[in-house]
Design a protein around this nucleic acid. Structure first.
Lengths: 188, 188
DNA sequence: GTCTATAATCGGATAGAC
DNA sequence: GTCTATCCGATTATAGAC
């Protein structure tokens, strides 16, 4: 019974991983349950043993994707500047595996129902809190918020442009601005 | 024949207006042709006399929405700072009529096909060009790009948060940062 | 828990009358 | 050009065997 439970959990994680990948790449509506289950190595019928609906999966997948993205940042850099650089890198922009759902779904979420928006809001607060922990004490909450806008906005924008030269320029400029932000720049 | 043509054009514009409103509010997939035509005061059957497909309408509606949003900005402010303030205002955030598609669809577009992305890219270049015309000669292209990230990213993010206090704080901080941007802040 | 088969629905697109 | 009626494909969700 013990490994049956862990096996189910493992399967669930595999589904979540596939869903996180597909939803961040294609959004909610363009992804089918078929597609997710196939990517997880199963068929559609098995889906409802793990999740009660597609929306249910979506909500769980966003959280899962955010955790993966945070781990990816943590692996590579220990201070705020490298976290910013890592997030706003060409690597992240073109990443085939881990992508931050905060950027990939920033406008999608505005069209979704309130439950999804609440999850997104919670994740965003976690995002800024995480940045703040990496920063030194001289960094204000307000600075962190602006850095978040530059990170999420810069990446989201870059992902939607076909002009890849321009996209990478936007990443670079957003990175520099976020890293150089001073408390002074935010005043009225 | 003359006013028959203008009547058709007028109807087309009414459809486009309804579509611009619905698509920026709900995204592509959650909007039905039924819904658009009903909002335009017609029925579904009449749709295909004006557009060849839903995607065709979507592409035209994004452009139409961008023009409306630009006009809205132009009406209210003549200089760069008031354009930024207007764009990143609580008014624009909660607007029931005109909304900027660049912010409302920034991550949606990344999931769409290339044609839509190309249109979005073209509109973005128009967006930055417009900002630059409002700015004085001391403003560099790079500054304008960062201002665009703060405007589009700030608004998109604010729209997805259920915590409206936080959303308006993000607007305010993004606005201040965009207005105070100096060439120095963008350097490596 | 996972499979195959099927029900039920929804929405884009077309046909033909007016 | 606009309407009503209809077709058709796609997809979520369920039923029942293993």
């Amino acid at each position: 019974m013990a490994w049956k439970e862990t096996h189910k959990l493992e399967t669930r994680q595999r589904i979540l991983g596939a869903a996180a990948d597909l939803f961040t790449r294609k959004g909610f509506n363009l992804v089918g349950i078929d597609e997710v289950m196939l990517a997880a190595g199963l068929t559609r019928g098995a889906f409802y043993a793990h999740f009660s609906s597609k929306i249910d999966l979506y909500e769980a997948a966003i959280i899962s994707a955010a955790i993966s993205a945070a781990e990816r940042i943590n692996e590579q850099g220990k201070d705020l500047n490298s976290a910013i650089a890592n997030y706003l890198s060409a690597d992240h922009l073109h990443s085939e595996d881990v992508r931050c759902p905060m950027a990939c779904l920033v406008s999608d979420v505005a069209h979704d129902d309130q439950r999804v928006q609440e999850i997104y809001t919670r994740l965003f607060k976690g995002f800024t809190k995480h940045l703040q922990q990496l920063a030194d004490e001289t960094t204000s909450e307000d600075q962190t918020l602006v850095q978040s806008v530059l990170m999420i906005g810069g990446l989201a924008l870059a992902r939607s442009l076909t002009d890849k030269k321009l996209a990478e320029k936007i990443l670079l400029l957003s990175k520099n601005t976020a890293q150089n932000l001073t408390a002074n720049a935010l005043k009225e």
